[in-house]
């Protein structure tokens, strides 16, 4: 078994108006920040998972996302997964 670290980004589905993102976008514009648009605010979840290989680790994390970490009715998820570097702190 190996330890994998998953980095999960949860954001509102594109079809849903992200009012928080919109408010931040307006604030950026009021700061005269040029050329910034489509601000989306989401959540970042990090976790370690013990699995025999990376594919199993990924499917375990996908299941966790589908059941609890995200709500597919309103959210999309993006999962990055990699073997935890040796010597990395717990």
């Amino acid at each position: 078994m190996k330890t994998y670290t998953a980095s999960i980004i949860v954001s509102l589905r594109r079809a849903i108006l992200d009012v928080q993102g919109k408010a931040v976008e307006n604030a950026l514009h009021s700061l005269h920040m040029q050329g910034m648009a489509n601000v989306r605010i989401g959540k970042h979840i990090e976790l370690d998972v013990l699995a025999p290989d990376i594919d199993t680790a990924r499917s375990t994390v996908e299941e966790a996302c589908a059941k609890l970490l995200a709500n597919p009715v309103m959210e999309d998820v993006r999962i990055d997964i990699a073997e935890k570097a040796v010597g990395a702190s717990a």
Partner: peptide
């Protein structure tokens, strides 16, 4: 109830924040 799947849809942040 929405999270449980007993009702359809979801409730998200108010439009006015």
């Amino acid at each position: 109830l929405c999270e449980s799947g007993l009702l359809p849809g979801a409730l998200i942040r108010n439009e006015g924040l």
